[in-house]
Amino acid sequence: MTRTALRYLRLSLFLGGVGLHRLAAYRLDFVLGAGAFLVRVGIQTAVVGLVFRQVPAVGGWSYHEVLFLLGFSLLPRGLDHLFTDQLWELGRKLVQRGEFYRYLIRPVNPLFSLLSERFFHPDGLGELIVGAVLVFWAGSELGLDPTAAQWALAPLLVLCGALIHTAVKLFFASLSFWTVTSLPSMYAATQVSEFAAYPLDIYHSSLRALLTWVLPFAFTSYVPCVYLLTGDTGLLVWLPVVTAGAVLTALAVWRRGINRFDMTGS
């Protein structure tokens, strides 16, 4: 058991090194990706700024609280991004072109084999850095003073959020085993995840329910932020359950998908 874990750890480090090496070879691409990402977050922040030019509070949230939420939402997203971006390729073309087979003929777990082709995606690093800057800046503007418990839980909250992002992505990417390509539905899911960057309170109740219990992106930012900002643990207790449920569901779909794969593509 530990030997397997150690083997995968060593492999991860090695393949991560390969990933970083690749970055150096495609420097322009990296700069473009990181730059595009910064522009995106910049525009998101600008939109929040423009909204708060008109009113002092939205749905009971102040400007800095919304920025805190926006920043925090980037952390689990970035962590997920760092390791699982190859899932986009699965949804896009690996089944369509029959290329997925190569993960089935290697003596490592197929999911690991797939993900490891793009470990340490640089866009993820950008998200983590920008997110952390936003969170700390907004937090200090708010005069936030977290308790020891909040400090201790914060990394776990980010980790669970990342796992939820990964699970949703894996779920929709795995649909490609049935639909040949599932890129559109992955886009749709990502688009829905954008809701998580703003306070849930402003949405229609049906949308709130969707984001909490169906595509549980609320647990990646809103729920943790409510806890970190106010200490309210109302929904927080559900976080482990939701995370486990999402991950297990996604893995089940992935496994069924693998067994369906026939390499013929389209």
């Binding site: 060593r10 492999l11 393949l15 390969v18 090496h21 690749r22 070879a25 490592v108 084999s113």
Partner: peptide
């Protein structure tokens, strides 16, 4: 997007 020697190095580890 890797060279053949790089691919082989990965295969060696895997």
């Amino acid at each position: 997007d890797l060279s053949v020697p790089d691919s082989f190095r990965i295969l060696r580890r895997i």
